[in-house]
Simulated assay, not measured.
Amino acid sequence: MRSKPLVAATSLLVTFMIFYLPSQALSTSWAYSFVVWDDHLYVISDEYVTHINDEIGHVTNYSDMEQYGGNFSNTYRKGTKYYSIEGISTDVAIAVNEGNGKYRKAVREGEYTYNRGVSAYTMSVLGTIAVLLILFLVYTRFFQKEVR
């Protein structure tokens, strides 16, 4: 009769894992083109600028499917350079080199907080592990009492 509780507990755990564990999205839908610089998100505008100043950084991560930390972009490839714009603070806008002497203005939208804190997915996995551990401990205590 030991196998009935074990089969029931295993079935419960498998069912719990199937329905409780979230699945990660395979792609991200972007509302707009952007770059990230200095932990801030800059939305790509339709405006080109001609008076640029110093190079201030470059794209370190590119993806049109997932988010990343660092100088990330969903539009520009790794290595694309960022510049400050003459007469405009980098707190307002920066320029992104598109090649062929063209620089597109990117307007600061706000702080980029992707890589800060623990993601919802990570919290779900940790929560699942905690619940499974508790269920295992309860089951083993119950099973030990039944055997005695």
Rank of each mutant, 00 (worst) to 15 (best):
V49E: 01
F143H: 01
K102R: 15
E111A: 13
A120V: 12
Y83D: 08
K81T: 14
A130I: 03
K105R: 15
K145V: 11
W37A: 13
R108Y: 05
S89H: 05
A130W: 00
E47G: 04
E86Y: 07
W37C: 06
I94T: 05
W37M: 03
E109I: 02
H40W: 10
Y103Q: 11
M65Y: 12
V125Q: 04
V49S: 00
I94W: 04
G70F: 00
N74M: 06
I129N: 01
E66H: 14
K78H: 08
N71K: 02
Y48I: 08
E109K: 10
S84E: 06
T122M: 03
M65P: 00
G87T: 04
K105W: 02
Y42I: 00
F143P: 00
R116K: 14
Y48M: 12
E111T: 11
Y103S: 04
V49I: 04
D39V: 01
S33H: 11
A120L: 14
V118Q: 07
W37L: 09
I85A: 06
N61V: 05
V43A: 12
D91G: 10
H40M: 08
S84A: 12
L126V: 09
A95Y: 01
N74V: 10
F136K: 01
E66L: 09
I52C: 07
G99I: 10
Y42G: 04
Y48S: 15
A130H: 00
I44D: 10
D38L: 05
G70D: 04
M123K: 11
R116E: 13
S63C: 04
S84K: 04
Q67G: 14
H40K: 15
N71E: 12
T75C: 09
T60C: 00
D46L: 14
V35R: 03
N115T: 12
W37T: 02
Y82M: 13
Y82K: 04
T113S: 14
Y139M: 06
S73A: 11
L132G: 13
T128H: 01
D38Y: 10
L133M: 08
F142T: 05
N74D: 12
S119P: 09
V59K: 13
W37Y: 15
N97R: 02
R108I: 09
A93K: 07
V118D: 05
Y62P: 11
Y103L: 06
M65Q: 13
S89Q: 02
V138T: 03
G70N: 03
E47M: 09
G99R: 10
F143Q: 03
E109V: 01
R108L: 15
Y76A: 09
L41H: 05
A106S: 08
I85V: 07
N97L: 06
L126H: 06
Y103I: 11
Y83M: 08
I85C: 04
I52E: 05
V125A: 07
E98C: 14
I134R: 02
R104C: 14
R141P: 00
F34P: 07
G87K: 11
Y121F: 15
S73P: 03
I85K: 07
S73Y: 04
